[in-house]
């Protein structure tokens, strides 16, 4: 309580704080730009620094990054965009305008229920992005834990984890999710994400494991061990930070894949269910009326493809930037 009362009083310092790093950043940039690679080795996280240097000058990164950012903002605050044409609510529907094309105030026209397509498409971003991110986070957590443990500990634990991974590799991603989701009654963003993660973690786990395996052999790890470092400390301090980059890059691409998977499953009728607002659902509803109202299929597809493309391209350029062999 007292702290909260104080904080408004401490306003000046509070506002000055953010100013600090902001002021420093240009300085940092200034020193890096002329210094180039020479300045880098001093800063520790060399790989990261190098990659960032590459990326910030790469137009592909900037464009895809911009779209990803835009979609994420759209997912978090759909209201910011939905109201642009005066009809921001996806739930205000007028059946008498069912299937009508664009008119003033409704740039994308109306769906079968007479709801504004533009508002629905904007609000649909949340389901897709949420599923994409949740699936990736779930898979990533499983992959990092299992991969690190298997790679570092080795022996029987490694064998066990590898075999389990193999078992899950056996299921085709979409087919596996289809079967599991089909048996569920109530499906929402969480259940769909969990099921997709269930079939999405093996690839990442393999990458993580092999990455840990190679880092484990490095001299500085051996040296630290020789100096009496404990396993947990070693993992945390040396191995994880140096082996996580490949799997992180992979995760960026996985977001796009997960979004596609969600849309596919929803389109097939086993993903999200109404009244959820999702691009997959909109596409699924639009398919039977395509000949009469093609706009119902076109707009959600555009948003879906741009989002997926952005995530995948972003992941791709990040991977290139992080891959030392491509330098």
């Amino acid at each position: 309580m007292t702290e909260r009362e104080i904080s408004p009083g401490a306003g000046p310092t509070g506002s000055a704080r953010p100013g600090g790093p902001a002021d420093m950043e240009p300085a940092g940039d200034g020193s890096q730009a002329p210094g180039g690679a020479a300045a880098q080795p001093d800063r520790g996280a060399t790989l990261l620094g190098d990659a960032w240097q590459d990326l910030r000058r790469n137009p592909v990164f900037l464009i895809s990054g911009f779209f990803v950012l835009l979609m994420v903002v759209m997912a978090v605050f759909p209201g910011l965009f939905a109201g642009w044409f005066g009809n921001g609510s996806p739930r205000v529907c007028d059946l008498s305008r069912s299937g009508d094309g664009p008119t003033s105030g409704h740039p994308f026209g109306f769906d079968k229920q007479g709801c504004d397509v533009y508002a629905n498409v904007i609000h649909g971003a949340r389901a897709s992005i949420s599923v994409g991110l949740l699936v990736t986070v779930f898979s990533l957590v499983i992959a990092v834990v299992l991969g690190a443990v298997a790679g570092y500990h080795g022996r029987w634990l490694d064998a066990l984890v590898s075999r389990i991974t193999d078992v899950f590799f056996g299921f085709p991603f979409i087919l596996g999710a289809l079967v599991v989701l089909n048996s569920m009654n109530n499906r929402n963003i969480w259940t769909v994400s969990l099921v997709l993660a269930l079939f999405g973690w093996p690839t990442m786990t393999r990458v993580m494991r092999s990455s840990v395996l190679s880092v484990k052999q490095l001299d500085y790890v051996q040296a630290a061990r020789g100096l009496g470092a404990g396993s947990w400390w070693l993992l945390r301090r040396h191995i994880l930070p140096n082996s996580i980059a490949p799997v992180m890059v992979m995760a960026t691409i996985a977001v796009g894949t997960a979004i596609v998977a969600e849309a596919v499953l929803t389109f097939l009728g086993v993903g999200l269910q109404a009244p959820a607002i999702s691009w997959g659902l909109q596409l699924s509803n639009a398919q039977t009326d395509f000949q009469i109202a093609p706009h119902l299929l076109i707009y959600p597809s555009i948003f879906l493809s741009v989002t997926v493309l952005s995530f995948i391209v972003l992941g791709d350029v990040i991977r290139d930037a992080f891959d030392p062999r491509l330098r």
Partner: peptide, 27 residues
């Protein structure tokens, strides 16, 4: 689905005291 979504929308929008009509589907 479309039929019952339409009915649900009608009921929700025309009855002021009803905030939502929850669609419960059985497999």
């Amino acid at each position: 689905d479309q039929t019952f979504e339409a009915l649900a929308n009608q009921i929700r929008q025309n009855l002021d005291a009803i905030d939502d009509v929850a669609l419960e589907t059985q497999p």
